[in-house]
Write a protein that binds this DNA or RNA. Structure first.
Lengths: 349, 349
DNA sequence: TAGGGCCTGGACAACGTTGTCAGATGCGGG
DNA sequence: CCCGCATCTGACAACGTTGTCCAGGCCCTA
């Protein structure tokens, strides 16, 4: 028997491309609407015989429950939103995947959105997600004012900020120990005899960049080294800018003998520049990179565990939804110094 | 005036944490429901004075439209789904981001889901997305039978398969030229004097792995080389398996003098193994890697453009939704051989 | 001043589902 | 033989929005 083409003559008016609804299933099975609902949701109170009839109708019609309607009725979407900077950045892939896994364990799906480091876009995205009534929101802030989320949080949207703290509101945060990590990394260079150490980082308005710079300054101060302005360069992470910054530091009468790179985007360019130099310059980088151990020399890094951060954040999100969590907290995830060679080079002069 | 706490005594019954609805806004502004709807959607036919009153009420109550209800009414969710293998894989991050950008240009959001290369999970995910009535679906297949999507496609869900073709249904596909790319890569090794060339790839049931193997065989045949079984190893991409495979090929009386790596996960392990060997073995790898140019020697790769693939797929998706597209097509995106040194090493014996 | 057209605003139904509640059915015991 | 109870089933309202349609008021013209 050829399947009946439901895509009728053009009348119908049923959107969703003429999809069958529970009503259609009910009619076909000769039962009430609610009975279909019960079967679909595996609720008790349906005779096997009835269930069989309903199931048959479902299969015959190719029915699939419309979760939009369900959501409207139930009030929970089983969806969480993740606003990050750029999914193409290798730091965020694993983070997103970790959030997804936790969500999956709670039966929820994940909507990803990239803010491209633009505060307006972050807000637009976060609010669009709220309009869809996501149950929770994980935000990697681009902006520094998140009061726009206050009504949403009050209305019950679980919210966790990651990688950078929330601005001007009190909320859960999961952060790396940026300050401590950078300090440790720079101290490592100092311990190997360096005094003129450069710092190349992201834009200073970004919290992580500022914290890592602070860590750099602290380590230098610990060592009793007066930092010169020419040793520090903060700005966009595009290769051109980073390249110029690195080249400037490496030339002149008193070039730096070591560089601390504040971010994985910066690192890849710095490595390229250093590879071109005749003099060997030491390097410690914030964030691990794939293959970093295979370069000559291996790149010493301050590693963050993106997956652990994502997992922690998502856990907290769902605990907020459970009601297990009361007060917002700031959680710091430790970093780990991984020595591979580039950080152990002695000063070249 | 302190804002009225709508989180009332526990009665109310309003889910969504007591959110105000258009009805509340209408009551407060002293207008009809539809007028609020008009204001919210920027529809014409509202006097500036009325609009002001409504806007005031919206702000005062912190109203935000419930898109779940909107979706139910309108039949379009402005959401697309992307089922991929693993967002943590550096190949998929850029791909996902590209899909997201195109979706964003069409006012849509993106739900990502990882199948972890498990066909059942792929199906579960894809169908869950359909239940949410995504407008379209981009699928990177894990399984090889996609008939389960037939009713959905018939019901109007735009669908594009990426990276691997759809199984047993006729649908749009966007693929890399896996066969041609691998053939070119292996031919490159042959051209540099190699005859005993190994192939290490992903599980053979995966289309890309099979195609790349086919490309390998073709190139070998072109060169009149009889391939020995010991030169080929297909299987999981976990480091242990790959390491054993590589080490086997590289030992014995007639070890391979060059390796073709069929996938980026495989490549990182192969590079590690080769780096440990005393003998220099040539390498060409399918898929580019960050920093591949900085290794010693630089890794010669057959590069795929993940972003272009994602963009192409998403474009087609929205053209399906426009109705611009009629017949399913299979689009092949060319690969590009990038020579960096590892592929140009001569045979070591 | 009456009539007609235009503009604004609002009542109402509908989208597809689930929760509530009451009705129907069957069975066993008094 | 009838009643009561347990089990199964279905009618109906509600979720929050948007599309349809009509009412009323205004202005302009004859």
């Amino acid at each position: 028997m050829p399947e009946t083409p439901r895509r009728a003559v053009g009348i119908s008016g049923n959107r969703y491309g003429n999809r069958p609804t529970m009503k259609d299933v009910a009619a076909r099975a000769g039962v009430g609407l609610k009975t279909v609902s019960r079967v679909v949701n595996g609720e008790p109170g349906v005779t096997p015989e009835t269930e069989r009839r309903v199931q048959e109708a479902i299969d015959a019609l190719g029915f699939r429950r419309n979760d939009s309607a369900r959501v409207l009725r139930k009030g929970r979407t089983a969806t969480v939103g993740l606003v990050l900077e750029d999914l193409a950045d290798p730091f965020y892939g694993p983070l997103s995947r970790a959030v997804e896994e936790v969500a999956r364990a709670h039966g929820a799906l994940l909507i990803n959105g990239s803010s491209a480091e633009d505060p307006d876009r972050e807000q637009e995205l976060a609010l669009a997600l709220c309009a869809r009534r996501v149950d929770g929101l994980v935000v990697i802030p681009a902006g520094d004012d998140h009061r726009y989320l206050e009504p949403e949080i009050k209305a019950g949207v679980a919210t966790v900020f990651v990688d950078r703290p929330a601005g001007r509101i009190d909320a859960d945060c999961v952060l790396s120990d940026n300050f401590g990590g950078a300090r440790e990394g720079v101290a490592h260079l100092v311990a190997h005899g360096h005094r003129r150490i450069g710092f190349i980082g992201d834009m200073p308005r970004i919290h992580t960049a500022a914290e890592r710079l602070r860590g750099y300054r602290a380590a230098m101060e610990d060592a009793g080294i007066a930092v010169e302005d020419a040793w520090m360069s903060l700005g966009a992470t595009d290769p051109g800018r980073v390249r110029r910054a690195a080249e400037e530091m490496l030339t002149g009468p008193a070039p730096v003998t070591a560089v601390f790179s504040g971010n994985n985007r910066v690192t890849v360019t710095v490595i390229r520049v250093l590879a071109e130099q005749s003099r060997r310059t030491a390097l410690v980088a914030f964030d691990d990179l794939e293959l970093a151990d295979l370069l000559q020399p291996g790149v010493t890094v301050v590693a963050q565990d993106a997956a652990a951060i994502g997992r922690t954040a998502a856990d907290r999100l769902f605990r907020q939804l459970d009601g297990t969590l009361i007060a917002p907290e700031r959680i710091e995830v430790p970093t780990r110094l991984v020595t591979r060679g580039s950080g152990e080079l002695p000063p070249a002069d």
